[in-house]
Structure formats: C-alpha cells, structure tokens
Write a protein that binds this DNA or RNA. Sequence first.
DNA 1: TATCGTTGAGTTAACGGTAACATTTCCATT
DNA 2: AATGGAAATGTTACCGTTAACTCAACGATA
Lengths: 339, 339
Amino acid sequence: MATIYDIAKRANVSAMTVSRVINNTGRVSEKTRTKVKKVMEEMHYIPNSVARCLVTQESKILSLLITDITNPFFTTMARGAEDAAMRHGYRLMFGNSDESFAKEKDYVEMILSMRVDGVLFSPSGDRSREHLEWLTRQNVPFVLLDREVPGVECDAVLGDSRIGAQQVVREMIRCGHRRIALVNGSQDVSTARERQAGYTDALQEAGIQYNDQLVMETSYLGEHGPLSLAHWMDLAPGQRPTAIFAANNMLALSVLKAVREMGLRVPEDLSLACFDDFGWAEEANPFFSVASQPAYEFGEKGIQLLLERIKNQDVPPRRIVLPCSVHMRQSVGQLQPVQ
Amino acid sequence: MATIYDIAKRANVSAMTVSRVINNTGRVSEKTRTKVKKVMEEMHYIPNSVARCLVTQESKILSLLITDITNPFFTTMARGAEDAAMRHGYRLMFGNSDESFAKEKDYVEMILSMRVDGVLFSPSGDRSREHLEWLTRQNVPFVLLDREVPGVECDAVLGDSRIGAQQVVREMIRCGHRRIALVNGSQDVSTARERQAGYTDALQEAGIQYNDQLVMETSYLGEHGPLSLAHWMDLAPGQRPTAIFAANNMLALSVLKAVREMGLRVPEDLSLACFDDFGWAEEANPFFSVASQPAYEFGEKGIQLLLERIKNQDVPPRRIVLPCSVHMRQSVGQLQPVQ
DNA sequence: TATCGTTGAGTTAACGGTAACATTTCCATT
DNA sequence: AATGGAAATGTTACCGTTAACTCAACGATA
C-alpha cells in the first residue's frame, strides 16, 4: 500500500507537504497542492489511520457496546447512535456482549487497546462497575445507555422504567386482571429492579397483595430454552395468573412461545404485555401491549452527551431520562367478570 | 496510559523483555516473567494495539459490512460471523450501509484506512464492484455474503434465491393462486434478479402467463413510506392479484402494513409470502410463509472462507451455496374455487 | 540596497510497539 | 580454570504519520 513517502517522492516534495495537503493544515501553494493531489489519485493513496492515531492520540472512532444485537430496541438504538456519530465525523464500532460479563470484559479490553475516543455503554449488570472503573482509570470517556450501575457517577441516557411498568400494569388491572405475573430480567440489572418496582407500585395502588410466587427472574435475552410456565398454569383456576407482564420484549416472546406450546391463546386464555416494543414487527402487525421507549433517541442523545464529555471532561455528569409511551393492544384482553 | 517503557523501567528490564512477556515469544526467565507480570498488573497496563498493528501489519480485526442492521437476516448473520471470528482470535467490526452506495463507500474507506485484516461484504448492489476492486487493489481479502457482483471473481457465501423463490411461488400456485404479484428489491442486486427468475420459473411451469403489471421494484429496506398497492387492489376482481410474493422479509412487512391500512386481511383477502424469515418474531408467533435461509451459517461460513483466504491468497475462489427451506404458514390461504 | 516579514517547504523527533540482531550471563564440560 | 554454547536480556531500527521547529525564497519597505 502506498505511503505518504511514495507520494512525496513521485510529487517531488517532502512527506510533510503531502501530510499538509491531506489534512489541509499549514500553507501549501496551489501548484504544489494540485500536483500532490494528482499523484495521490494516481496511486490510489489512502491515509493510514493507524499511524495517524498513534501520533495524534485520537482515532475518531467511538464504540457502542450493547447486550443483545438481536433485540430491536438495541439495534434501533444503534442506528440512532450511528447516524449521530456520522454527522459529527466519527465512526462507530459495535460490540455485542450477549448479557455476559465475560464477553463484555473482552470488548472492554479491545476498546482500551484500540484507543477509541469514547464509549456508549449498555452494561450487562451491576458487576460492570469493574469495567467502568477500568475505563475511568484509563481516561476513556463513556456514557451509560439504558441501564445504571450503582456506585458509578457518570453521564447516562435512561428510560423511565418504573413509571412505564407501573402504567402498563395499571392498564392490565383496569382490564380486570388481579393476578398478574411478572417475568423479569436479572436483578443484577437496574432496569429489572425498576420495572419490578413499577409493577409493585401498580399492585399496591390497586390494593392487590404482592405475591412473590408470581414473580420469575431470568435473563433478558429470553432465549435460554422456552420458559416453563407450568408452575403457574397448573395452579387452580382461582390462583392461576390471568395476565403476565414481561420485563422486556424478548421475554414476552419467550412467554408467548411457551403459552402457545401449552396450547393456550393470547389474549383469550392469558393476557400479555411487556416493556419495549418490536420495531418493524409491531409496526406491521400490532399485537403486543407495550411500554415503548424511544430507542433511536437513546442512541442519538448518548452520542451527544459523549461528544460533549470528550470535549470537556470537567462538566458535572448529566442524566437524561426519556419517557416511554404505553400502547395497549390486542395481547391484553378484558377479563370477564365471571372468571 | 502506561506504555511498555513505563513497565520496563519499574521492572528494571528492557522494553523488549516486557514485549516478550506480553506475547509469550522468545525466552524469559520465570523470575523476570513474574516480576514483569506483577508490574503490569500494578500499573493496569493494556497493550496499545494501534502501535502493535503499525509494526506487525496485522490488526486481528475483521470487518462485516451489511446493508440493513434492522433486518433479522443480517443481524443473525452478524451473530454467526461474530462467534466464528471470536473463536479464531479475531474481532469483528460491524458496518451498516443501509443499502446505500454512498454509505458503503464511506465504510470501505474506513476499512482500508484502518488496515483490517479482511472483510465480509454484503454489497449494496452491482455498483459495489468499484469498492471491491478497491479492496483488491489494496490487497485486502474479502468474501461476499448473500449477494454476488457481476464481474468480480471471489469467494462467496450465497443462498439459492432462484430455487427458493420458485418453491414458494409454486406452493402458492398449489393453493390455487394464479394471479401472484411480486414486490421485488432493486434489480441492481443479484438476489432480486434471482428471485424474480425463480418467480418466473414457477409461473412458467404452471403455464401461467408472466405479467409485468404484477411486478413492482423497490428497495429491500422496505421502509420508504408504506408501499402503495392501490394500482393492484383497485383492479377488477378478475384481474386483481390474490397473492403477493415479497422478495424479502422487510418488503413483506411493508406489504402487510399497506394491506392492513387498506382495511384488508391476510390471508382472507390476500395471501402473502416472502423470502427470509423473521427470527424471534416468527418463532414466537408463526404467521408468514417464507423461504428461510440459514443466516447464522452465512456468517460462520463467511468467516471460515475469509480466514482461509487470509492465510493463503492463492487458492482459487470458492463459492458456497446454502439451501433454503420453505415453510408455508398462515399468511397463505387456500383460494376458493369460486373466486 | 539592506532589512524584515511572510510564505512555502523541509528536517527531526516522536507516538508505542516488535523484528532482527547483539550482547551478556551462566552453567556444564574438559 | 578455561571454554563453549545455550539461555536470558538488551540495542537498534523501523512501521506511517504529524508536531514543532528550521530554513530558504521573495517581495515590500525604509
């Protein structure tokens, strides 16, 4: 591959002059400039950003670490982040931790060793604190997305999980449901805790006794085999839940699958609602009742905060909380008074 | 950030010895090794892969360029590629061209300037040839995924678009449909041409006259506003299509949305089938009739070919064609003989 | 005409590693 | 005790670029 020296030799100038032409810095006569440019074209020259990064100490690359690349919430977020980064002359590198602390660690190491300029970070859980402290120590700016980590003071773009969950569950109660089960993500994740709190809030305000038999904790990935709902559905009719609230979209799909495999229908036999929507799937064929978050904006605002942080490390941490909107659809049915 | 020299000084050795410890190359006494390792721990040292890349001329990074990051076919492919790359000690950088030649160009420039070791490339269309020639000229190995580019001889992992399309359309014909419309991607993309050919094959073998009024060409993204189907649905009952074959999943969603907005139902008023499935969405709530491709394998095999290509530039190009499987589901209905 | 400031271009030394070669250390052997 | 050779460690140069400094040429001014 051609280097700046190859260009310099062919153009009868020094390498420095070529560098000046490339970066539009310093003074170069028009004549020299055109000549250098012509030679660059001829030789199909492409600057080596690795070498450039080594000397300038900036890569113009940001990193986005998400926990599930098959989840439309995160891919939409990725789009928002990508578009915003591009607009500001930055590139975005994606990483996918699969909700795994170990994979996340791998990515953090890569991020550090690649000397990216900043990171948008969706932590896999509270243990991610360790990784964030690593970033802090190495002076790599970051912004948390979607999830908080206790004990880490930093910029963050979050959703209002508690209110959103409360609203959805409230709507289910309004439809006559009183035995509502919760299929939650790991308690190690801030949004899972918040959503459970919102769920409890809604029960409380309706005077419904909280019953921890109706709460299940699993992984947000929702892919570790079909969920077993037997322990709920085998209960006596008067004790069996009539509705399930899933703490995210992937869990709702697992629930739906399990329900279908038991030969039951949604919403006729069981109502179902969840946090986060399904992007294109929902748009074309609305079915799920959801608390929908503005995923694209998460990414956009995240980049915005990150770039400001990169520019100025000293401003106090900022927290942006984006509201969610509740859409009640076909998956939640009105409960017959008889039942 | 600590450098190899900082470590060397603290450990009373030369930088080279530190390098040897890091890379497990050359001979280092056990005593020195433990000491150096201890100092590295203490100083939270992380190797600078930028500097390393500059001297070794390899980055251990591969790039995956896809055309639609919200399409489950591509995200699943990404997963397959990521897992395979990881297994072989490589990292994967994702890029998303949004089916746009211009965005693709940006990414190719980045790829070249970052000196990645190889590229998995889903071309946005035939014009991508220009970008591939660029890669070739700069000696960056690549493998095409999902789509071919005329005039470019190289490794590729492809699906059998023609056969798949033929099979699906054949099934629709078996259900009694004879006026089947095609909503296709851009003719600039190899799979769109293949799928159209398969569609035509199926019509031909059933003795149905091809009618180019029933063929529409748009973008695979399927997001440029809701598709207008009025010109078809406003036809006289005896001319109106009774079924639509969409050339990919995103187009099928656009069609479904448009159909719903016209107040029509699938499959009662119109049958619908497509190429590619919907990952989790379909799994939990099977609805669409599809020709499903093994997306994960596309990524896996792609990485495999790419790594072999990197190791040996001289082997002749290889083409892997993965079969697809047809699943006829609810979205295609049996046509009443009356109609 | 001597002087000075401006413009255009070149030189040198980093950035943080590693390859290749050079040197020292140390132990076994005679 | 001298010697040889392997093992352990060090030195130097370079990867491709840019920052900081230096230098030459030239026209304007006193």
